[in-house]
């Protein structure tokens, strides 16, 4: 899927407000977010700041999305638990999966988090789905995305979509 198609899918679902910290997993997605005149994208210095900004959008009745990589997952845990979770502030969090499955995939700094990512996300008990290449091939991506968004806004909590390398290129 191209970054443009991914953004189009989110725009069609009323996501126009974004923040995040870049990740090479998403190819040119961040420049698409920056250059699309319909969108607002705030480059955050750290992932928890992106969650703070996106939560400000959410409470102002705008659907919001954070895009980041899994190496920043630890940085958002306090925010999504002690803030979004108890104040019921929904945010769609799109996370790139560096070090998929652990060693020897990707660079050494991604091995441990690459292996632990899904366990950590599942422990948070937030709505969660992951997208791999076959989900694009058999057109399951939009179903998974819609299912996640429905849960996020029914329960008013953040939800995570974990995206494998090569899905967006």
């Amino acid at each position: 899927m191209s970054p443009e198609d991914f953004v189009k899918a989110l725009k069609e679902r009323d996501f126009l407000y974004f923040s995040g910290v870049p990740d090479s997993t998403f190819g040119s997605l961040f420049s698409v977010l920056e250059n699309d005149q319909d969108l607002n994208y705030v480059p955050a210095p750290k992932e928890d700041v992106a969650i703070g900004i996106a939560s400000g959008f959410s409470i102002s009745k705008k659907k919001s999305c954070v895009v980041m990589q899994n190496s920043g997952l630890g940085n958002i845990i306090n925010a999504v638990t002690s803030f979004n979770g108890i104040y019921k502030i929904p945010v769609l969090i799109v996370i790139g999966w560096r070090g998929y499955g652990g060693k020897p995939n990707d660079a050494p700094e991604h091995w441990i988090m690459g292996e632990k990512t899904t366990e950590i996300i599942k422990d948070l008990e937030l709505p969660f789905t992951s997208i791999e290449n076959q989900d694009i091939e058999n057109q399951d991506f939009l179903n998974k995305l819609d299912g996640l968004i429905e849960r996020i806004y029914n329960e008013n909590i953040p939800g995570i979509i974990l995206i494998n390398k090569g899905v967006i290129k």
Binding site: S19, D48, G52, I53, S55, G56, F57, F83
Partner: peptide, 22 residues
């Protein structure tokens, strides 16, 4: 008033998102 119990350090980024829209 939004009383932000917990999530120390996040008041400014949250306020900023609100200021951008409102």
């Amino acid at each position: 008033n939004f009383y932000m119990i917990g999530s120390m350090g996040l008041a400014s980024s949250f306020g900023l998102g609100i200021a951008m829209i409102n």
